[in-house]
Amino acid sequence: MSAGPYNYSYIFKYIIIGDMGVGKSCLLHQFTEKKFMSDCPHTIGVEFGTRIIEVAGQKIKLQIWDTAGQERFRAVTRSYYRGAAGALMVYDITRRSTYNHLSSWLTDTRNLTNPSTVIFLIGNKCDLEGQRDVTYEEAKQFADENGLMFVEASAKTGQNVEEAFLETARKIYQSIQDGRLDLNAAESGVQHKPSQPGRNTLSSDQQFNKDNCAC
């Protein structure tokens, strides 16, 4: 079988971080399944999702790690930042405390990822306009000051969810094109994967997973 246009050529690793209950798992679910999970239990651990997207004609496989937001797990979830090409940092627009903690999440992200990691700020639950506790403007200003990309989104309605994940990928892809992101660096969070279907069946994917386990 010849290498065709449907195999992916890159793997990007994403992490989703933010306080407990801001909707990280729901965002992931909305992105991978196009559905809203109404009774989403607290994540106790790190959930894992995947989807293949297309950027500039390139198929890219996103490997998304959705982390537990509870404070008591903070020390453990820090292990998962390493090697992320994209970090989606989420707060809840109806709970100011989740917004106030952003600087601490951002510090972790900056310390534990590499400089080329794309950080995207997401103000989730924008469908709950009536309960808004954080204005768009102040969050936008925070994002600008810290050089983050930013949207308000809703995991419930799906608004801007797709955009946030895809825009992050585009930015990462752009970094690769510009040479800002070194694919050979062990922790770039990007794997270039020339399509080799014959070989994939036996080893390379497994290899990749193993690399990721060394948390």
């Binding site: 079988m1 290498a3 065709g4 246009p5 995947t50 994939n200 069946t201 497994q206 997973n209």
Partner: peptide, 9 residues
């Protein structure tokens, strides 16, 4: 741990 990607095409 191989993923279905190999057969995707």
């Amino acid at each position: 741990g191989h993923g279905i990607s190999a057969n995707r095409e």
